[in-house]
């Protein structure tokens, strides 16, 4: 199997996996970065959201062979001390219920706010619509995003 050199959370990582392996499973199975979650595997739930450069991507849809040297950020690397403004807002609003979807929600929200620091209500809904929360914490997620935006 080919060797891939990856740049993940600012660290160089080497993995030996099949080229079609989605980066989701490379992170979870090979690099012990299990914060990125599996929810659907078909780009429908957003649980697996990571940043490739500054862009939010569904890691279940991205084969490792396509990553190249683009820097990848996962929830574990979003901030060094867990104090990214989005993470702080999530704690302030006590957003999580089961918590399973929240890494994906946070990563998506962080990318949205980076690209658009003052999103409108409709822009928040549009950008976040791909992230399902089965516990239905949507009202709190939106409130937390608004806190960061204000």
């Amino acid at each position: 199997m080919p060797i891939f050199n990856l740049n993940i959370n600012g660290k160089k990582q080497q993995v030996d996996v099949a080229p079609d392996t989605p980066i989701l499973w490379v992170l979870r199975d090979h690099l012990d970065l299990v914060g990125t979650k599996y929810g659907c595997g078909i780009a429908q739930c957003g649980a697996c959201t990571i940043h490739v450069g500054d862009v939010a991507m569904r890691s279940c849809q991205m084969p490792v062979s396509q990553v190249g040297n683009q820097p990848i950020t996962t929830i574990e690397g979003l901030s060094e001390k867990g104090d990214h403004p989005v993470q702080r807002a999530w704690l302030e609003h006590d957003v999580a219920q089961c918590g399973y979807c929240q890494a994906g929600q946070i990563m998506n929200a962080a990318a949205l706010l980076k690209a658009n620091p003052k999103p409108s209500e409709a822009e928040i809904e549009g950008a976040m619509n791909g992230n399902i929360c089965r516990c239905a914490t949507y009202v709190r997620i939106k409130a937390a995003i608004k806190t960061v935006a204000s």
Partner: peptide, 14 residues
């Protein structure tokens, strides 16, 4: 939530 900090930083919980 006592697990809040772990949830928002993606620590293994599940």
């Amino acid at each position: 939530n006592v697990d809040g900090p772990k949830i928002v930083t993606g620590q293994p919980l599940f």
